[in-house]
């Protein structure tokens, strides 16, 4: 099938590329752009291993066509660390809290947490669990993942308060 030109901002970089209209966004990110934090788990929207953030919302990139990304802004885990290589708060919290074992689910979980990290209102543990309920982890038992999200939100809140 004839390839199609799309323009998309990926990790803050404006990118133009030709994609096959049958290609999933997960394939585009992994194969064309080598952003291999995006994992193929189930490939049918069940596990969340392929989660990326598109215009502020989390999506399963395995069931999202690459052509749909035209004109959108996408974040993957590769876009989180600073240019000097310093981990983002949420990444550091996953390390510190022991929220990673085999690590296969980790990029997807981190992407699903992004939309709520900066939400200012208090969120209950249940609300946080709901936000990651489309992400499966076969190793950790989830508790440390939820802890890491809570600790990151606390840190962001403290940073915000000390700025005021």
């Amino acid at each position: 099938m004839a390839k199609q030109l799309i323009t998309v901002t990926i990790n803050n970089k404006l990118t133009e590329l030709y994609v096959d209209p049958r290609e999933s966004l997960a394939d585009m990110l992994r194969n064309d752009l080598k952003l291999t934090s995006v994992k193929h788990g189930c490939d049918v929207g069940e596990c969340g291993a392929c989660t990326v953030v598109i215009d502020g919302e989390n999506f399963d990139s395995c069931i999202y066509l690459a052509i749909w990304a035209d004109g959108k802004s996408i974040t993957t885990v590769e876009g989180l660390a600073s240019l000097e290589g310093e981990l983002a708060d949420i990444q550091q919290a996953f390390v510190d809290d022991g929220a990673i074992q085999c690590g296969f689910c980790t990029p997807g979980f981190i992407m699903s947490t992004l939309p709520l990290l900066n939400v200012e209102e208090d969120l209950s543990r249940e609300e946080i669990k709901k936000q990651v309920s489309g992400n499966f982890c076969r190793c950790t038992g989830y508790t440390n993942i939820i802890n890491a999200i809570e600790h990151t939100r606390e840190k962001i809140k403290n940073d915000r308060d000390s700025d005021k």
Partner: peptide, 9 residues
């Protein structure tokens, strides 16, 4: 419905 990713798409 489903989870957050499914509700977004």
């Amino acid at each position: 419905i489903g989870g957050p990713q499914i509700r977004n798409i």
